[in-house]
């Protein structure tokens, strides 16, 4: 008789254990759901980074920093609009008038737009010109190093 009772008790213990495990899993899922609901929804915003595009201006005559900046701005706005220009905010930060080499800083998400724009510039200050992108770097230091390498 005692044997029967022990077997029945064993079975009930096993059933209770599996039931408790099932309930634990379910409660965990509910807990996660409630936690996600209570947390404030904030999209992960990536830190805006910069890219430095090294380029060379092949012109018939000498062109100056302001002229190059103005031509790039005009072409960028013509093809991508003012809103994209404000986002990208391309700035000519280095320019050597004698060699025609320079560096433009731009937002990392708009590098492609700037590279396309450089090819579309055909006239700077009424002089026939070509802007040739050479390299894109992540830091100004590397861009400067590349410019110095080109000088040698």
């Amino acid at each position: 008789m005692l044997e029967y009772v022990s077997i029945v008790l064993l079975f009930t213990a096993v059933i209770m254990l599996s039931l408790s495990l099932f309930l634990l899993r379910k409660s965990l899922r509910i807990y996660k759901g409630v936690k996600a609901l209570l947390e404030p929804h904030v999209k992960s915003v990536k830190k805006p980074r910069k890219r430095y595009v090294v380029f060379v201006a092949l012109c018939e005559d000498k062109v100056y920093l302001n002229n190059v900046e103005e031509a790039v701005k005009k072409a960028f706005i013509e093809y991508y609009g003012k809103s994209m220009y404000h986002k990208a905010s391309p700035q000519l930060i280095l320019y050597d008038e004698n060699s025609g080499r320079g560096v433009i800083r731009v937002l990392h998400t708009c590098t492609d737009h700037l590279l396309a724009t450089l090819g579309l510039v055909k006239k700077i200050n009424d002089k026939n010109c070509l802007l040739l992108p050479l390299r894109t770097t992540g830091t100004l230091k590397k861009a400067r190093e590349y410019l110095e390498k080109l000088r040698i």
Binding site: Y79, Y80, D112, A116, K123, N128, C129, P133
Partner: peptide, 19 residues
């Protein structure tokens, strides 16, 4: 038709991508 009417190859690829 003239030398300044050529396009840098990288600019062509990026132009096709963005436009």
């Amino acid at each position: 038709n003239k030398w300044y009417e050529l396009y840098p190859p990288l600019s062509i690829v990026k132009f096709l991508l963005t436009q």
